[in-house]
Write a protein that binds this DNA or RNA. Structure first.
Length: 502
RNA sequence: GCUGCUAUAGUGUAGGGGCCAAUCAUGUCGGCCUUUCACGCCGACGACUGGGGUUCAAAUCCCCAUAGCAGCACCA
């Protein structure tokens, strides 16, 4: 039985259930797979590196973790991973907080790794005492060669006492950057070369860390393992680029006898059409190619917010994508659909006339048009546009046409007389316009209009919009027949809008 | 090169031996509705990477191939 058959059968048998049928098939948010051992609540984390504002990649990680914290209850730790002074932008601390607020993440705790250096030092010493780490003074290149052959470097044979002494010298500033590193003792014959004796601590003397006076810093595998344990993290959802790190961190959990969290690694998400790399964005901003971190060509959250995409649309899109291990390509189309769902019921409708042609409609009566602010919500009222015949029309929509209907106004005939356009009044009849298959287009009175620029990723559109748009700053509106746009600014009577999507 | 992960319509997803000639969303196309090419409604289109096996039965389990991705940093 086909779906429509079923539906009509149901209508015969139990019409009262029909509403339920259509209801349940419509709005139902997706349920992601259950997390093992999460029944009594979870402690999860979002751990960005403060090198710039958050982008769509961060959005996936943070929203997926947020989703499970909401689902199971518990705590959500924001852990700022600022252990590499080279990759810390002091301004990013604030930007990350702003972006998190925008996303609406349910963060319950905030920790900065740069506040916890003493903890890492202490546990590093303990790890050395346990024989789980040694201080390596080999050149990194030399170590790499040995490692690939599965061979130990001489430092590996040092006694615990020797290692502790070297470690103390490291802390005392007796080494220079690059001369020494603390390695976790794993297995030099491990089939995966990525597992062999990785680094846990190193010296960074340049640049200075913006928050803390130190030169010895942990590498992420060490600080992450330590913090995941100390903060009581129960579940970790992150990208599969961390699979090897998860295995490396397991060594530290094992040395200390800690129980590791449950991990889930989702696949790589390719995002096209925007710039995502922090360095690429920074260079572009410095060279003037981009206007700032919220330039619409960037994949930052502030950039897509500027384009009128709502945080919940991003959230819905990310939950929809889920935690699958397959590599995927992020779909702007799907994001826009989620956003339209949110924005369409809210957005007021206005006319925007790009690339305008000003004409006089011969024989036109004085007329006042009333157009609904929202066609599905008459209670919102109307915009009133009065004209005596001088109007603005979108060039592309009248080219090659002999008759069009001006929406909520009247019909016009267009004749091309050499270079001159002759536009004449052609009555008020909507039926006639329909009969002649005249398109219904937007227009503006020549006397009442606001200059407006519609900025899009692939270039901007100049034109005019209704005066009422001035009151929509920061809102998303729908320019009829063009699409949704966020009114970014209204300066000195000039409107600047960012195109969101159709 | 070594190690590992993955493979369902254009995109995202469900499905983990029979209920699958495969779900839902998005998209595209057509229709209805409509003073927007919006919204809503109806319909159509469109996929189990390939090859072997196991089994009465495979999208689902196993092997191989192929492809994509990740890691092999004193980055996170």
């Amino acid at each position: 039985m086909s779906q429509s058959d079923r539906k009509s059968r149901l209508e015969e048998l139990a019409p009262e259930l029909l509403a339920e049928l259509t209801e349940t098939t419509h709005e139902r948010s997706r349920e992601l797979p259950a997390l093992e051992g999460a029944e009594n609540g979870v402690v999860m984390r979002f751990a960005p590196n403060p090198s710039g504002p958050l982008h769509l990649g961060h959005a996936r990680a943070s929203i997926l973790n947020d989703y499970y914290v909401r689902r199971y209850g518990g705590r959500y730790v924001l852990r700022i991973e600022d252990t590499d002074p080279r990759r810390v932008d002091p301004e990013a601390y604030g930007m990350v907080q702003e972006d998190i607020a925008w996303l609406g993440l349910g963060i319950t705790d905030v920790v900065y790794q740069s506040d916890r250096l003493d903890i890492y030092y202490d546990l590093c010493r303990k790890l050395i005492e346990l024989g789980g780490a040694y201080v390596c003074v080999c050149e990194s290149e030399r170590f790499r060669e040995l490692k690939l052959k599965g061979k130990a470097c001489p430092c590996r044979e040092q006694t615990v006492e020797e290692n502790l002494e070297l470690w103390q010298q490291m802390l005392d500033g007796e080494f220079y950057e690059g001369d020494v590193t603390v390695r976790v003792k794993t297995d030099l014959t491990h089939p995966d070369p990525a597992m062999r004796d990785y680094s846990a601590m190193r010296i960074v003397s340049e640049p200075l860390h913006p928050r803390v006076d130190a030169t010895v810093f942990p590498l992420m595998n060490f600080s992450v393992a330590v913090d995941d344990h100390l903060l009581g993290i129960t579940h970790v959802i992150r990208g599969k680029d961390h699979i090897a790190n998860t295995r490396r961190q397991r060594y530290i959990f094992d040395y200390f006898g800690w129980k590791p969290p449950v991990y889930r690694h989702y696949g790589r998400m390719g995002i096209s059409g925007v710039v995502l790399s922090t360095s690429g964005m920074r260079e572009g901003i410095e060279s003037g190619l981009y206007t700032g971190w919220d330039d619409i060509h960037l994949g930052t959250l502030r950039a897509i917010a500027r384009r009128g995409i709502e945080a919940d649309a991003v959230r819905n899109a990310m939950v929809d994508i889920g935690i699958g291990e397959t590599d995927i390509s992020f779909s702007w189309e799907n994001l826009y659909a989620k956003n339209k769902e949110l924005v369409d019921p809210k957005a007021n409708r206005y006319f925007f006339v790009p690339d305008p042609v000003e004409v006089t409609v011969e024989g036109a009566p004085r007329h006042e048009a009333h157009a609904a602010l929202h066609p599905n919500d008459p209670a919102r009222g109307v915009r009133t546009l009065a004209t005596a015949g001088r109007i603005l029309l979108p060039r592309a929509d009248i080219e090659g046409r002999s008759m069009v209907r001006l929406k909520d106004l009247y019909n016009i005939r267009i004749a091309q007389d050499g270079d001159v356009l002759r536009v004449t009044y052609a009555g008020d009849s909507l039926d006639e316009a329909r009969r002649e298959k005249a398109p219904i287009i937007q227009w503006l009175p020549a006397e009442t209009k606001l200059p407006c620029t519609l900025l899009r990723q692939d270039g901007s559109l100049e034109g005019f919009c209704e005066p009422l748009v001035a009151g929509e700053a920061d809102n998303v509106v729908q320019f009829e027949r063009i699409g949704f746009a966020r009114i970014d600014s209204v300066d000195g009577g000039r409107v600047s809008a960012y195109f969101a999507h159709r």
